[in-house]
Design a protein around this nucleic acid. Structure first.
Lengths: 258, 258
DNA sequence: CGAGGCCTTGATGCACCTCAACCGACGTGG
DNA sequence: CCACGTCGGTTGAGGTGCATCAAGGCCTCG
């Protein structure tokens, strides 16, 4: 039932939505999402507060920057980007988000979303009212602990991006990006060597602090070296070892510093 | 009593340390640190778990990357940096931390510190055993909520750094950095126009994704424009408005894109 | 079939890196 | 005491990686 919904999502009925209401227990993402480590009873309590599932079609907004914070959002299926807009129009993509990941953590501090969240393909989103989440996590210590880990994981991820933006060259950034995507697909049961990018070169560039032309050239370069095969949005990683080696490459340079 | 300790910290006795033990109630940083929004009784409970205060002298480590996570650390006085080291020797400063700020949030997810934390001047640190913090926050909802806000604030801060690293020019980065420091000093009751940098040009550069020479040149440029006066580590902001204007400057460029 | 979005590739310019020289502050040891 | 080395900072000269500008190709969709 749920499975078919993910394939043909245009056939929603009221019944479907009611059935979806408390679905954490049956959700295939239990081991990735908030319910990690909870027992059946606790998962049920969590499922009860996940008030509804939202469908966000490609190109539309899950939430806007500046909007009042009410809920966290868990990606059930699909693919989203978050981005911040500077006053002068510059945009920076702060992350790409796939199933099992949580959005809105940035909004807790200011009670306002700091990012726009935009679907890059049709997505299904579980809405988690944050006040209720805090309330029940007082009664479910393992939920609270896991939530803290999720927030902390986001901080660690951000440090990784800072490292990338602060000290890597274009080719290294792209290699790091592809390896990250590859791993996340793999964890979700997809191929780590073959996948489709959901975002444009420009969005990749924004995330990596590069211009779209530079991203394109870096793709071409990796392809010339037979490390990957690029066919528009489709990526095939031919030699993941050499792709990984791209990261430690400036080891040689550092060597001379000693 | 506490005040004198902060001035002459070499004269610790056992009694002093005992007195320090539960000091959140008397700490001048209550309005910045974890106790925000707690009543007297709750502050006392929090103070009870802050097992001890550590002194970290300039140049030494508060914690190492890779070490087992036990505690968060609150900066009571002093100044620290956190940095990650890549396998190839590249280092990236991920943050500078002053009084009232919390360190170690990154370690919650992996139960291992991901950064080195190094004192840039003699510092006093409150150690907060994290397991105990989670335990008592189950009983003090407002503490839990505030803790969530602190973690979220760190995520927002990281987004800001990502924006800076991903899309700003050298001069804009430095302006942003100085304005950020200025504001943090101001909040703590110090001058927003006159302050001493605790870090080297190289550390600033690492944080901002620039080389130290570039940082130095950017300082000189801002000085040439009479926006700041630089005397080694001392900074005087002469014209904070024009410093702020440095940030929105590429508005003009963006304008042509429309 | 034409328009527009996305991508690729080439030519050129510039912001920042790299390398190098020099300065002042500081600490150490003869 | 001064000679000396070290460390942090500044400044200049030259090189380069990426941005910018521009042209053209492919694909989709009306």
């Amino acid at each position: 039932m749920l499975k078919s919904l993910q394939i043909d999502s245009s056939s929603y009925s009221k019944l479907d939505i009611a059935q979806l209401k408390s679905s954490c227990g049956t959700c295939g993402l239990r081991e990735l999402c908030l319910p990690v480590g909870l027992n059946e009873d606790e998962v049920k309590k969590l499922g009860d507060i996940v008030s509804q599932k939202r469908k966000v079609s490609r190109g539309s907004y899950l939430h806007y920057a500046g909007a009042e914070f009410q809920s966290l959002f868990a990606v059930r299926s699909g693919f989203l980007k978050t981005c911040i807009l500077e006053q002068d129009g510059r945009q920076q993509v702060t992350g790409f988000h796939m199933s099992g990941e949580l959005l809105g953590l940035d909004a807790i501090s200011t009670e306002t979303y700091t990012c726009d969240a935009i679907a890059l393909e049709d997505s299904e989103i579980c809405e988690i009212p944050f006040a209720k989440l805090e309330e029940i996590s007082l009664a479910i210590p393992s939920l609270m602990r896991h939530f803290h880990k999720i927030m902390s994981r986001e901080i660690v991820r951000d440090y990784g991006v800072m490292l990338l933006l602060g000290s890597m060259k274009a080719e290294e950034r792209l290699a790091s990006f592809l390896l990250n995507l590859s791993r996340r697909f793999y964890i979700r049961g997809y191929s780590e060597h073959n996948f489709n990018l959901r975002m444009t070169r420009e969005e990749i560039g924004s995330y990596l602090g590069l211009k779209l032309e530079t991203v394109s050239r870096a793709f071409s370069k990796l392809q010339d070296e037979s490390i990957i095969v690029v066919d528009n949005k489709h990526i095939e990683i031919k030699d993941i070892t050499r792709l990984r080696m791209k990261l430690g490459k400036s080891y040689d340079d550092a060597f001379f510093d000693m």
